[in-house]
Design a binder for these strands. Structure first.
Length: 182
DNA sequence: CCCTGATTCGC
DNA sequence: GCGAATCAGG
């Protein structure tokens, strides 16, 4: 298709009137892609209709950057897809309260602690809840670390594990501890 | 799925 | 310059 100035002006008029690229394409026996390409090359006559997000633009720029032979584009470049995958993964993560919720009014603390030191958080272990390794915790299990403050780290760190409210990090009793109410 | 527009790149 | 292919997104 050879686009004359008259064609372009006429297509641009339809575009500014709000017709879609598909509709305009039919007028000219052309595909919508032809119209979109035409619009892109004559942006001054075809006002932009959609603002693209910064993440989208970034992804496109990165996609257009030549890569060394054999090197695959990083999946993480596709930001919206990544966002969707993350959301799906959170959704799929099972909610597994292993123990009944602990009410703030009635926590029963276990006797003693590893060291007796004030900084030893194991003194906040709940009597009725078996500590669990940090890495084993489900979505709605208390992540309160039951170790000496300085030693808090690692996937095997024992944590409270009691049921939490939806998406909360701590059970009610340990939320009170964190807030200085205990 | 349907649809929309935007961009890239081989022709 | 053209527009198919492919992108993001409503």
């Amino acid at each position: 298709m050879n686009w004359s100035d008259a064609d372009i002006a006429s297509a641009a008029k339809l575009w500014t009137e709000g017709h879609s690229a598909t509709v305009i394409g039919k007028r000219f026996k052309a595909t919508r892609n032809a119209i979109l390409g035409l619009a892109h090359r004559n942006r001054a006559l075809f006002p932009e209709r959609t603002k693209r997000s910064l993440t989208t633009v970034t992804a496109q720029v990165q996609r257009s950057v030549p890569r060394p032979a054999g090197q695959q584009r990083l999946k993480s470049v596709n930001v919206p897809a990544l966002r969707k995958a993350r959301a799906a993964s959170v959704e799929a993560r099972p909610s597994v309260p292993m123990v009944p919720p602990v009410t703030p009014e009635s926590p029963r603390w276990a006797e003693g602690s590893e060291t007796g030191a004030r900084s030893d958080l194991s003194r906040f272990r709940l009597a009725d809840v078996e500590p669990r390794p940090f890495l084993s915790l489900g979505r709605d299990q208390c992540r309160f670390p039951l170790v000496a403050f300085e030693a808090a780290s690692g996937p095997d760190m024992p944590c409270c594990g009691a049921a939490t409210d939806l998406l909360k990090s701590y059970c009610a009793a340990h939320r009170d501890v964190m807030a200085g109410r205990v």
